[in-house]
Design a protein around this nucleic acid. Structure first.
Lengths: 322, 322
DNA sequence: TTGAAAGCGCTAACAT
DNA sequence: ATGTTAGCGCTTTCAA
């Protein structure tokens, strides 16, 4: 009967049903060539024993794919990245694949560790939101048939598919919005320009507002609050501020609330409750889940044998004026 | 050399280095008993070939654990659940385990599919935020040595560990807060009481405020907005409202904004920008990541052989008055 | 329709 | 210090 702790194998089932191992395999995999009565006996034995096929052994022998993707993101707990994960999951589910996920916490070494661990588990492919800017560590894997698609930021030092958003266009739209509102003095607060997205957003903003004040290297809400506070304390403070990401927007909102300042804010990334805030906050919005879905589709094509040159998909943003 | 598409095995490495398979295995696993010069030759062959150990074959043979946990949550893209996932990931990482994640979308059948798929992949254990209330489908697995810990809601029809929050106490605190503020008419808007958390929150609230208006069955922000609007349109509208979850809180906020009503809101789950909203919103707050961490620790104990009776861990909430 | 034998890539247990 | 053999749980190949 069902003995505790011992997982039954196909050969246990075979013994229980009084058939050969191969017949059990046929039943489990719905292969033809098993008589109804035999199949029934096997099914019953499977039920009695609580047998469940070992998918790793199966993949090992058949040499087939593991039907599993590896996703490396910055932080599973961050709503922006978890929205990407959500998109990836929708697409993998549609393909009957499972998903291993890990957070790099913006640490390039951790990103590498995770990606390589996933390779060790023989995932079909890798989806990476890069923390680092040198992905040569993947070269041996890619040469041996592993596939990787990059999300939100392009890969560094290697050629590979990437799905990005149009950062520069979004930032241009933000600057145009502020100028159209008639602000004479506008400013931008952006993350470290070593980061691709921050660099692009900075560039786009400056293309439209060449003489705006620009503060870079702002990574979290606390710094955002401090820097915004400094801007508001200037002799001639800006009356419109572009915030390079949602953490900065939150910091800037706090600074404005603290200073009692009435400033027009435009943030990259939308905020869920933006409409209910005491200050009006416009947004450069886009769909993070679509990044994940698109990347997963690209990856699936590669896994299926697409060998065309590396592609770069750029997703649009839209300005939500408030 | 490095031929495209063909993954080298240990025996390829052995041939390349001119040693036996077992010697390669020793080097790869840092086992003692290999001379420095041999180890070096093997290392070089590994580099040249781009060899990476197949972890599934390893686990298959050694009969050891796969060092992988399966997590079933409602929706990876929902900040509340992704915070749980974050806590789980922190704890698994500390143990050198990987994490497979899937979203049930509140569909009991999907929950079951995912959990059983994870078993097929031979995860060491299961972490489940239940969508359904009947988990007997897990019985065969549990009998055969699989372990499961439930998060946020208890399992149904089976005995298993669970990590919950003190829903009733949180709701009581919310009611007490509203009464202490001197509100004569207070109301509660809560999710479907078929859901454990909603039922508990409802119960706690009623224990303190027996004659409050209570609306149940509210699942999303849209319905929350409509129901809150109805309450505000009453001849004698409530002046304090308890919202049973963050989606309801958002809906109620919109309704208050639309009606221009000045109402004291207390929401279960905190909102990131609550301090910056035009309306003051207090919160029954707690740490979702701690749910995930705690559950992962419980699970690790079970995997390590702990056979004590099923445990139930209740995590506290705290009222954030604003 | 059914089964026996070989082997996927690796490690355990035993040689040498 | 190094190698040989067997076998994890399954599928493939071939035979009956």
């Amino acid at each position: 009967m069902t003995v505790n702790g011992a997982r039954p194998t196909m050969s246990d089932v075979a013994a229980e049903a009084g058939v050969s191992l191969k017949t059990v395999s046929r039943v489990v995999n719905s292969e033809p060539g098993v008589s109804g009565s035999t199949a029934l006996r096997v099914q019953e034995a499977i039920q009695r024993l609580g047998f469940r096929r070992n998918d790793s052994a199966r993949a090992l022998r058949s040499g087939q794919r593991f039907r599993m993707l590896g996703l490396v993101i910055e932080d599973v707990g961050n709503p922006f990245y978890s929205a990407i994960a959500r998109g990836v999951e929708e697409a993998t589910r549609a393909r009957g694949q499972l998903l291993i996920t890990g957070s790099s916490d913006e640490d390039p070494l951790r990103e590498q560790e995770l990606a390589l661990l996933f390779c060790e588990r023989r995932v079909d492919g890798l989806l990476i939101v890069p923390a680092g800017d040198d992905h040569r560590y993947l070269e041996p894997e890619l040469r041996l048939g592993m596939h990787a698609v990059f999300i939100d930021r392009p890969p560094g030092e290697i050629e590979a598919d990437a799905v990005l958003i149009d950062n520069a266009a979004g930032a241009r739209a933000a600057a145009e919005h502020l100028l159209a509102k008639g602000h004479a003095r506008i400013a931008a607060i952006v993350d470290d320009t070593a980061i691709f997205t921050a660099r692009e957003r900075c560039r786009g903003f400056r293309e439209v507002a060449a003489d705006a004040i620009v503060r870079t290297g702002v990574h979290d809400a606390e710094t955002g609050e401090r820097v915004a506070g400094e801007l508001l304390a200037l002799a001639e403070p800006p009356t419109g501020i572009f915030c390079g990401n949602n953490r900065i927007t939150i910091g800037a909102l706090r600074a404005c609330a603290a200073a009692g300042a009435r400033v027009d804010l435009v943030g990259f990334d939308d905020l869920e409750l933006a409409e209910l805030l005491s200050l009006r906050v416009s947004a450069v919005a886009y769909d993070p889940a679509e990044l994940g879905r698109k990347a997963t589709e690209l990856l699936a094509d590669r896994v299926d044998g697409d060998t065309s040159p590396p592609r770069r998909v750029i997703l649009p943003t839209r300005l939500v004026a408030r």
